[in-house]
Design a protein around this nucleic acid. Sequence first.
RNA 1: AGCGGGAUGGGAUAGCCAGGAGAUUCCGGCGGGCUCAUAACCCGCAGAUCGGUAGUUCAAAUCUACCUCCCGCUACCA
Length: 702
Amino acid sequence: MSHENFPTDRPAVVTCGLPYANGDLHIGHLRGYIGADTFNRALRTLGQQSVYVCGSDMHGTPVAVNADKEGVDPEEFALRWHEQYTETFPKFSVDFDNYGHTHEETNVELTQSIVRALEDGGYVYEDEVLVAYDPQADDHLPDRYVVGTCPYCGEKARGDECDEGCQRHLEPGEIENPTSVRTGNPAEYRERTHKFFRVSEFSDYLTDFLDGLEGTSNARNQPRQWIEEGLQDWCLTRDMDWGIDYPGAEDEDIVLYVWVDAPIEYIASTKQYSERVGSEEYDWEEVWRDGGEIVHVIGRDIIQHHTIFWPAMLEGAGYNTPRGIAATGFITIDGKGLSTSRNRAIWAREYLEEGFHPDLLRYYLTTTGGLQQDVDFTWTAFQEKVNGELVGTIGNFWYRSLLFAYRNYEGTPEAEVSDEVRARIEDALEETRTAVNDYSVRDVGLSATRLAQFGNEYIQRNEPWKLTDDDPERAAQVIRDCVQIAKAVGVLLQPVAPGKAQALWDQLGEDGEVADTILETALEAPPRTFEEPGELFEKIEDDRVEDLEAKLEAKIEAAADRAETESDSESMTETTDDTTEDESTETETSDLEPLLEDRIGFEEFQELDIRVGQIEVAEGIEGADDLARLEVDIGFETRQVVAGIKRLHDLESLPGTKCILLANMEPAELFGVESNGMVLAAGEEADLLTTHDDAELGEKVR
RNA sequence: AGCGGGAUGGGAUAGCCAGGAGAUUCCGGCGGGCUCAUAACCCGCAGAUCGGUAGUUCAAAUCUACCUCCCGCUACCA
């Protein structure tokens, strides 16, 4: 089965994975939302009718548990995050046509009606399952809230997985010596009746579905394995009170599993949009019932939910299934996995507070590697991308063309666009069409960059500044071409960088919104006159990047220190926080810094004046969490040194300890205290280097 | 353990599905040019046995098999 290329005459809906109302948004979330937003905007430039919808995911155990910790109602807790998300998205030009949440009436009704439809179709049955129960807390414990002993290898294990031992997946009820993570008490098992969805009956349907599915290859290939292995039926209910009631069981302490109602929010949100604008303009039922174009952008960690359970549910309840599923890769920071608990993350708020335009991040995230690839974020790479492509290529071309046109013609010169340039722009439009149909937001952005690059070459090759006197007609022709290219770059860049594209649009004196234009507008003549243009992109300076990288490093270290001091008291309750990134995968080696490739000579080593010293005085610096002031005797003299070991060492016991000091370090002032050297230490716990024999104070280390 | 994705000049990325002279773009290095433009821009050069081994083929970065390393997934954690 293959699909008709976009644009089609059916309405489309683009969605992105629902943010879980349990924490701040970071760059990893933004990647998906920006990618989907870009895709939706690009679809529209093709002339495809399309809306972009999403909503907050309000239910599930983590919300209930964290609300409980704070002593607030889960709804209140989740709504707070929901409101924050609602405010954040527009700041990144993530422009949802509707943004709802899963606890709204629209979603509750729709979810219950879909579950009833599944029941009516005979796809739901009841079965008994063992559920861990904490008698003291009088609460049932979802699987990860239980720890115990693995029945297979005897290692310590979590309720659902033997994470430290044999890596086996554990079924509920299997784990031995179950213990509640929440109270530390022994847990007991209770038999409960739950509802199950006959996913297994959809094997053939899903196989066909996957054959026709567009999007990224991982979303197509990975589920095939699960189908071949035989699908297991899916438990639809949970022993909780926070969630959507199972229809007909409103009085019982049982709700629908969060993954049932979460994707239904895609439909509910579309419905809300449809009701707002009127079904004449956009009919949600046409999309979800009759065969509109449904595209999901998701993280690759939730592929199975979207390629197995979700289409099975839709099919079973008589709904339309997705045309495309694009599963994005993850974001890494400086080459290491993003980790919210370790604060190895760029938070949405942080980025905005730095004052960077959202389009810079949008461009970086969409054009650095394909949608499916993992993308590494470093401030240095961000700077290169911005300075090289946005400032140097696009910004520079826009500015030089428009400025030249303004100074010499007060706008667009009166001439016809040359055939060469017209053809080149048409190629660029075609590149974009292909990119959209390949689900490549990267090429959507790069088609604009490449066109700007052509523009730079074109202007250079024709040297209009030499022609203004000798051959005014030819000069006008060249500049006419350049202004047209500039406009086309704006139209092409809009899906990725809507704010900057609009700014160009305004400079060109165009009316209305560039976001409302279709690709063909790129070939229409710009207004005859326009005002003096300004520079649209600003270079990021090197020292700025150094600051940013240092700041990032510092906050990661601070988080590590905090975890260190808290780990003793909270070890029982810390096992489950939020975890897209898992502690168990972060082994020792992946945490080590990679070895440096560059070798240095002996002379360079000699430049490091490393001495044996002895700590004479150690005291904390007031106002600093981590810093301590040390006085170190290095034979010749006693140095005052500041070290970040306040919380990691017992300062009173340090005097008398030998240490190793980098003596010719540039002096620095930290918290008002001058530091004249660096005490060497290793590891996150700042294990101090020392000597073990007769090295005397002041001796050089070599 | 199984499965999915990845490994391409110093760094980063495209190409692979539909095999065809060792290939894209960006950063960095070297040389030149230009001056309309944000020390920008344009041109040229250097630099890679396309992770390894075998195979299919007239032809392999691309297809097949096996191997190594990295990331992820394995379903009641959103």
